[in-house]
Each structure stands twice: as C-alpha cells, then as structure tokens.
Design a binder for these strands. Structure first.
Lengths: 190, 190
DNA sequence: GTATGTGAATCTCTTCACAGCA
DNA sequence: TGCTGTGAAGAGATTCACATAC
C-alpha cells in the first residue's frame, strides 16, 4: 500500500474509488489497486461499504486494537503530546511518562505522574510496545536503547537526529524543523 | 530532487557520494544524480566540498536567508513549538503569536505577547510569508484563509485536517497521530 | 587511483482500459 | 448501467557502469 491513508466521510453507506480519489487527490485506479493488494473488499457497480473498508484498513494497519505507549522527555513538546487527544482515534493511550529532570519527576502532567527515566524497567509489567521519544539529540540514542531493552518495538522519534535500533524495531521520525525547512523552496521570490 | 535531505558531518572538508549514501541509507548514484540536477558541485577523485555543498543546498531550498513566521493557536503544541529552538538552524524565527482565547491574549509565551487572532492584519507590516498553524480542525480553514489574505505564502499545518489554499500558497501538513498510526503495522504479533 | 557526472538499463509505481460482476 | 478488479502500457525513479577529470 503506497497509497495515502483514507479519511472517510462518515454517514455514507458506500464509497466509490473515484470519490476517495477525488478526496485524496489521486487517480481512482490507484485507490482500487492499493485496496486490492489486501483483498476484494468492494462490490462491482456499488463501491466499497464505508464501515467495512474502515475496519479492514484498521485491521491491516493493526489499529483495530488498543495500543499502550510510554512517553520519554516531558519538555514542552512532550507535554503537548500528552495533552493531545488526537491519538485516541487510532486507539493509542499514553500510559506513563519519564524524564531525567528531578524537578519534573513526581509532578503530574495530564493526570500522569512523571517517573524517573532510570526506572524505565517499570514499564515492563505493562507489556508496552510503543514509545514516543521527545528528548534532545544527545539523549535520544541512549533512551532508545533502554526502551528497546524494555520491550519496545516501535518508536515515534521527535528528536532531530537518527537513532539506531536492532532489526525488528521500527522507528518513525518526525523532524518538525526539517519539515518547515521545505517550505521556503515553494515560495517564489523570497 | 527526490533524494533525502542531507545531514552532513561537520569537520570534514570533503564528503563523497558514497559516504553520504551510507549515512542516508541510499545508493551513491542516487546522491550524485540528485545533486547533479542542480549543477556540478563536486570534484572528480575528491568528492564534494562539505561547506560548499551545504551552502548550495541551503540556497536551493532557500533557507540561506532568515525567514520570519507567525504562529496561530497557542495551545500546548503551539507553546511547545514556540519554545523549540530547532527552527533557528534553518533560519526561521517566530515573530508573533495569535490566539482566539481571551485568557491567553496578552500573556507572554517565550518572550512573545500573544495577540488577538482578529488582529491578524497587524502582521502585514512585517512582510511575513510563513505561518505555523496549531489550531483545531474547526478553525483551521478559516484561519488559513485569513493568513493567506494577509500575505502568507507558506503554511506548516499541524491540524489533523485538510485545508484549501489558492494557487501559489504551499501547505505542508503534519498529522502526528497519523504518523503514529503507521507504527503498529510494523510490529509483529500485536 | 579515486570519485564525479551521466547515458543506458532496470526496476517500480501509476494510469489506462476493459472484462466481469452486481 | 455503474463500479470493481486487474492485465497491459506508460511514466518515473533507481541503479548500473563507465568515460571523464582530478
């Protein structure tokens, strides 16, 4: 699936590939082909059952179940993410937060008590497989190593640096500044 | 240029395409081809002068000059971004912040006084061409329209919804939750 | 010798176009 | 009739491989 993720208008029982294509700014054949890689979900002459399609895609992306995550680095960005409600849509919940700053440890952020980063192994009992990394570049690799050794299999990395992880662990990196840096390119006569 | 952005190890006078490729996890021919689209910056038998290459890429991406930006939506994420120092590397500076919440208007965040969103036209005098949008979905389109009518040509959109802008205006959207949603797919047996 | 710059070959992704089915 | 599902065609991106320059 190279295609984009779907954002379906709710309330319609069926949706056609051309409607989806229009909405996403893509070719309808691409939509059909992408979906077809995972099976035959549609009905000829009708389209795709909206609810069924959402469920199928959720299953494929494995977001049909709840996922627990921990957050490491309770700075401004970390706090913003902890307060962000948008994760719930995809079944994510932040179960614990860690930081190395003694001033932050013990304080409550969004109902979660910030724990000492050296006590990361406390997350083990929860069988948490995902982590959000909002520490600075210097700490990122070390924290990632620690997360992996405590059972984390997926990391959403907000630090502006590359981190190395063993096979079987997935890192998705978001560098906000780098995304912003792409903007001037498109602006004529700056 | 379909290739990735470069993160050069400083301190080395020259860097070869194969070194860059290794660092970025790409093929060296791709690096050379991508760079060649913009000119002949290298020296055969030697490689690319590191500093010169950085300067050339900065020029191409137009991040060789300072860029002023405004931020709209001083929530958790907005505050986090205002406090974030990583933008400076690419020459960005946040000059003003706006919000619709009367409790926030007039307060100081990171040295910047939060202004009333209805007074957005005050940014005109500064000739600001870029904006960071950290409002919710409901306000996003309306704010974007207002930004555009006040001269903004590039928007970094953090709201989890699509916004429409006229030709000549570029939007780069970052949906943190959507990025996170890609993670479980890569994790075996969840 | 070493590494760029680039045509040619290859591979991948996208779109076309239509048979097949509701 | 209308829309899916999919081979075939087309477009685009990546890699190969080597002449060229330092």
């Amino acid at each position: 699936m190279r295609g984009a993720t779907l954002l379906l208008e709710e309330g319609k029982e069926n949706v056609s590939s051309s409607e989806l294509a229009k909405f996403l700014g893509l070719n309808s054949a691409k939509i059909r082909k992408d979906i077809s890689y995972f099976g035959k979900f549609g009905t000829r002459g009708v389209g795709y059952n909206t609810l069924k399609l959402i469920k199928q895609i959720s299953k494929i992306l494995k977001i049909d179940k709840q996922h627990k995550a921990v957050l490491v680095g309770v700075g401004n960005l970390g706090k913003a993410i902890m307060a962000y409600t948008g994760f719930a849509v995809y079944g994510f919940s932040i179960e614990a937060a860690f930081d190395s700053d003694t001033k932050k440890i013990g304080t409550k952020v969004n109902g979660i008590v910030v724990e000492d980063i050296t006590k990361l192994e406390s997350m083990r009992s929860e069988k948490i497989q995902m982590a959000i990394l909002t520490v600075n570049c210097e700490q990122a690799q070390q924290v990632a190593d620690s997360l992996v050794s405590n059972g984390v299999k997926g990391i959403l990395n907000f630090s502006p640096c590359q981190i190395e992880v063993p096979r079987g662990v997935k890192v998705i990196s978001i560098d906000i500044a780098l995304d912003m840096a792409r903007l001037p390119y498109y602006i004529p006569k700056i």
